[in-house]
């Protein structure tokens, strides 16, 4: 057994002195009803980095991501055991309102999901929700520029968000998420509905955005993780107990995970022996 793995087969993460941990997720168990969906996944998300979540279907990578801003609370029967520390507080603390958590941790979804309103109103939505006192127009412009969409839409801000192409819609959703300048942005397979060119743009965008925002990224695409992620977390499915329970297998620098994986399972997955 490798030195960085403890007796339960769980991974101990080596302390990284360079970057501060923004979200410290210590997930023990996640249930949907009686179904144990994910177990034992300790994922620290570090400031100014992109942390990629990879793994086969059903390994719980999306569930872990959505646990970070309590999006899973919308799912009936969802139960979380463990804690997620954000700014020194457990987001699952009994006094914490999930709505507040989501205002500080932004999210971009698998399918582009702009609202049926104008491009401007889409981006301004979060600002208005927070009763933003500053210059809304300026903030919208700033967010659209950061999302690399400004030049394409600056002459038609009143046009419906739904009139844009898929890739543009996803960048609009990114602009909407970053307009309120959240500390962390969670991205749940943001490119899975996009063509390769649009995917490339979003990937470039993610790398630019990490200067200012900390990003956690779920991706089904290993190449994407190697291209953008600083840290990579590999999840897999444990079928030994009869169910299909996801868990964290290995977490490390992206290069280490892909070039020198410590776990047999990671090795097999990286080599493409299962997916």
């Amino acid at each position: 057994m490798k030195a960085n793995v403890n007796e339960q087969g769980n991974v101990k993460v080596k302390p990284d002195t360079q970057a501060k941990v923004v979200i410290d997720c210590k997930l023990d168990k996640v249930y949907y009803g009686d179904f144990l969906a994910v177990r034992d996944s300790h994922v620290p998300i570090k400031k100014g980095q992109i942390t990629g979540f990879i793994g086969p279907s059903g390994c719980g990578k999306s569930t872990v991501l959505r646990s970070l801003n309590r999006m899973n609370d919308l799912v009936q029967g969802f139960r979380f055991e463990g804690n997620v520390h954000f700014h020194g507080q457990d987001v699952y603390g009994s006094t914490v309102d999930p709505v507040v958590v989501r205002r500080y941790i932004g999210m971009v979804f698998q399918q582009p999901n702009p609202f049926a309103m104008s491009i401007f109103d889409n981006v301004a939505f979060g600002l208005r929700l927070n009763r933003f006192k500053g210059d809304v127009e300026e903030s919208v412009e700033k967010a659209l520029k950061k999302a690399a969409l400004w030049d394409e839409v600056k002459d038609k801000l009143k046009a419906s968000g739904l009139s844009l192409s898929g890739g543009q819609q996803q960048r609009l959703c990114i602009a909407r998420a970053i307009a309120t300048e959240p500390t962390v942005v969670l991205m749940d397979e943001p490119c899975s509905a996009l063509d390769p060119i649009a995917t490339r743009r979003i990937e470039e965008l993610m790398v630019e955005l990490k200067e200012k925002f900390t990003i956690a990224l779920v991706t089904h695409n290993m190449q994407q993780a190697t291209r953008v992620a600083d840290k990579t977390a590999f999840f897999s499915v444990d079928i030994s107990a009869g169910g299909r329970t996801g868990y964290l297998v290995e977490l490390g620098d992206t290069r280490q995970i892909f070039e020198d994986p410590q776990q047999q399972l990671t090795k097999e997955y990286i080599r493409g022996e299962f997916s």
């Binding site: 801003n69 999006m71 919308l74 709505v99 507040v100 958590v101 989501r102 205002r103 500080y104 932004g106 999210m107 979804f109 399918q111 999901n113 702009p114 609202f115 049926a116 939505f125 979060g126 929700l129 927070n130 959703c173 909407r176 998420a177 309120t180």
Partner: peptide, 10 residues
């Protein structure tokens, strides 16, 4: 997914 987007923004 539209509802999700709204809740995701807090």
């Amino acid at each position: 997914r539209i509802k999700e987007a709204a809740f995701g923004l807090g």
